[in-house]
Amino acid sequence: MSGTPPVRVVTLYDDVMNVYADRGNVIAVSQRAKEYGLALDVSPVSLGDRLPADADLVLIGGGQDREQRRIASELAGRGEQLRAWAEHDVAMLTVCGGFQLFGRWYRDHMGEEIPGIGLFDVTTVAPGAGWPRCIGDVVAKSHVTGLGEVVGFENHAGRTYLGPHAAPFATIEYGWGNNGGDGTEGAVYRQAIGTYLHGSLLPKNPTLLDHLLEAALRHRTGTDIGLERRPAPYAERAHASAAEVARHRAPRFDGIAR
């Protein structure tokens, strides 16, 4: 791939939205790009920083409630640009709290509404006391062509509901998913993916990792050159082991609201 211009990766608030090890996604992207001989240009963008003029891949992870609140208003000011990027098929992976803030709004357990950027047509409600957090291993089947099974670990209080214009990222086999009720997991809009899966997600889902890299490369070069898929033996074994653990101890989704 020499001669290809560097793929521009923007990591959003990775020093604030960083509690659930979503940094592993950045590490996986960097290492995989190296294996494919792709040059990367990674720009961390946090509170007070400017967004670069363009990007090919955007990553944002999950944070605690307080941290999510801290970035919400600034993120709102960047909504227009991020939505425009999504319209132009910039690849995005938004996880947990990041996914919630890329939705329309998040209503906390006190009923206060935090506006999101509305990139995904989803809304999230944090139920009050007495409702369990959605915590545990996940196995889901992705609706994105060619992705197949995804595995990860979810840990969220908020219940996310898809609006009429939203498509789910995956269907839950084991675990809670968006809300524990409708069997959906995450959301997809063009090349942007929202999900609740940590784990970290990209290291042990090499097919998804390659899919995002390809989408980013497509955005960068304007041509669908595609990657000659390389094996990922460590990732595949970790994927298999995580899936086995989930099937063994996570609740099988049975279509009944929990």
């Binding site: 290291p203 042990k204 460590y234 990732a235 074994r237 970790a238």
Partner: peptide
């Protein structure tokens, strides 16, 4: 450990090829 494959993957990503798993 029970999640030896996850650990091996993490180490490999950190540039440390495991000697055995």
């Amino acid at each position: 450990g029970r999640r030896a494959p996850d650990l091996a993957l993490r180490l490999a990503l950190a540039g440390i090829e495991p000697a055995a798993v």
